[in-house]
């Protein structure tokens, strides 16, 4: 057991930690908004925004998936308190990513958007991943957790599929340099692999 994990934050402290993580998660978005106004996003600002929002979606999704393993390994169960916020931020960046796609890429041309979604496999899976995130975000409230009961955990296992689709989406669109998609794929595979391993060991299933 790691030493720090025994330092369970009190309710006041955990509020501060939450506020800190919340602020940190907003930094990439803030930088994009600032850059758009300061004209410091490079020669192709739309590309910068598209890439950045996509990257942070995948990053936050991966961090969300890391919460449970990290908590099991370290015993720092309070980490669970951050999971919903991290997941919702992943959804927030996914929305920003989706909006850049329909606005800047297609200028709200519905026919062109549908054509792209149907014809381009990497767009199809990115779009599918986004759609699958929507019910998870909608059922993230305490009331919904209570109402859905055991089905809530079942539903939220969708996040595994979403992560896989997200990595595939990134992998597929890269022109040649696969370094980053490979890193994401490795980490996500590791996090999903751990769950399978624990499951095979017959540990009680955790949400």
């Amino acid at each position: 057991m790691l030493g720090w994990s025994r330092l369970v934050p009190g309710s006041g402290q955990s509020g501060w930690i939450k506020a800190g993580v919340f602020a940190l998660c907003l930094v990439p978005f803030g930088r994009l908004v600032y850059g758009a106004f300061a004209n410091s996003l490079g020669a192709n600002p739309i590309e910068t925004i598209t890439r950045s929002t996509g990257w942070w979606t995948l990053f936050l999704l991966t961090v969300t998936l890391a919460v449970t393993p990290l908590r099991k390994v370290s015993g720092a169960h309070w980490l669970l308190k951050l999971r919903r916020m991290l997941g919702l931020f992943a959804f927030f960046y996914a929305c920003a990513h989706f909006i850049t796609f329909i606005w800047f890429d297609h200028w709200f041309d519905v026919a062109a958007i549908l054509k792209d979604v149907v014809k381009r496999p990497f767009v199809t899976i990115g779009f599918a991943a986004f759609l699958l995130l929507v019910p998870l975000a909608l059922t993230s409230t305490d009331a919904m957790v209570r109402r859905l009961g055991r089905n809530w955990a079942r539903l939220h296992r969708l996040v595994y599929a979403i992560a896989v689709l997200g990595v595939a989406h990134y992998w597929w669109l890269v022109k040649r340099d696969l370094t980053e998609p490979v890193i994401f794929a490795t980490v996500v595979a590791g996090l999903l692999g751990l769950r399978l391993y624990w499951r095979s060991k017959g540990r009680p299933q955790e949400r």
Binding site: A36, F104, W107
Partner: peptide, 20 residues
């Protein structure tokens, strides 16, 4: 094979306020 070549974004012109 992976993306459309029908449109393009002119650097410095097309973007926030003009479609591709």
């Amino acid at each position: 094979p992976r993306w459309s070549q029908a449109t393009e974004r002119r650097i410095g012109e097309d973007g926030f306020f003009q479609p591709k």
